[in-house]
Every structure is written in C-alpha cells, then in structure tokens.
C-alpha cells in the first residue's frame, strides 16, 4: 500500500532543487527509512513521485553503498576496516564478530537480527577501532567491549 506521508515528504523534498531529479537520493533515504530497505515497490514509488524512469532510480540505488536493495538485520554492524582502525586491531574484531554471530561480512543472521558489514573509513578515526551500529558510532572497541555490546543486543 502506498503511503501518503512518504509521497508528501518526497514531493516537498523535490521543491528544494532546481529539478526534481536532484531529489532522488533524499527520496531513496526517505523510502529506505520508511520500508526498512529498498524494495522494488519502494523504488517504483520514488520513480513515480519524481517522474523518473524506474531504471534510473534502480541505477542510483545500486551505485551508492548506503542504499540497500536487500533486507538488513535489526542491528546493522558496520565495522571499519580501513587503515587507522586496522592498525588498532580491526581485523581481530572482524574475526570475533564473524565467529560470535556465525556469519561472514556481508551476511545477515538467520533470525534477521544482525547484519555484519566491513566498511571503509567512517570518518571517526580518532575513536579507532570503530563501528557504526545502525546510526551510532561505537568507538575505542576492544574484544571485551565488543562481547559485552553483543550481549546487550541479544
């Protein structure tokens, strides 16, 4: 079922730009927040509201790494593995997460609770090693802190 508030938000968004095409990224962010991830229907809605071909919307959704065209877990763990975090043990933390959650990076647990992703620099290297749990940074990680955190999320 289509949602009128989403339509309104997207149409309002389009007025901020000289052409409505510019609103495709904000619209995809809104649709993703609304539906959890970008389903075919969600992308079709965005295309309709912004008067764009569906293939254009799909092209944008797949170019950018923060848009998900597959379901992600309730908790999305995005572990930075770039240089500053790597120097401070991110690789060990990655192995620990893979073991404890019993999935590899890029996968979601069978119960749909956790998705684990290895990501590039999060722009928070002063708190390395760091990961993003949904929208929040969790910095200065070590094995113990990570284990404790997973427990509270169970």
């Amino acid at each position: 079922m289509k949602d009128q508030t989403l339509k309104q938000q997207i149409t309002e968004m389009a007025t901020r730009y000289p052409a409505s095409r510019s609103a495709v990224m904000p619209a995809l962010h809104l649709a993703q927040a609304h539906y959890g991830y970008l389903t075919q229907d969600a992308m079709a809605e965005v295309a309709e509201y912004l008067h764009l071909p569906r293939v254009t919307v799909l092209e944008i959704a797949t170019f950018y790494s923060l848009f998900h065209t597959r379901r992600v877990g309730k908790y999305h763990l995005q572990l930075c593995t770039n240089l500053s975090c790597m120097l401070l043990g991110a690789e060990r933390l990655q192995r620990q997460l893979e073991q404890q959650l019993d999935i590899r990076c890029g996968e979601t647990t069978a119960d749909g609770r956790f998705t684990l992703t290895a990501v590039e620099c999060l722009g928070a290297c002063e708190m390395a090693p760091v990961m993003q749990l949904n929208d929040d940074y969790c910095g200065h990680l070590n094995e113990q802190r990570l284990a404790e955190m997973l427990q509270t999320l169970q």
């Binding site: 052409a19 510019s22 904000p26 962010h29 944008i60 790494s65």
Partner: peptide, 20 residues
C-alpha cells in the same frame, strides 16, 4: 545527504550526484 561513495567528494562527481 550522500549515500556512501568516496568519489562523490571529487567536486564534479559531487555535482553529478547532486543532479541525481
């Protein structure tokens, strides 16, 4: 709000991205 692409920091890629 960007969506996770390092190249969009390059100014002309940023402009393309902002044009949808």
């Amino acid at each position: 709000r960007g969506a996770g692409a390092y190249i969009c920091g390059e100014e002309t890629a940023l402009i393309e991205s902002l044009e949808g």
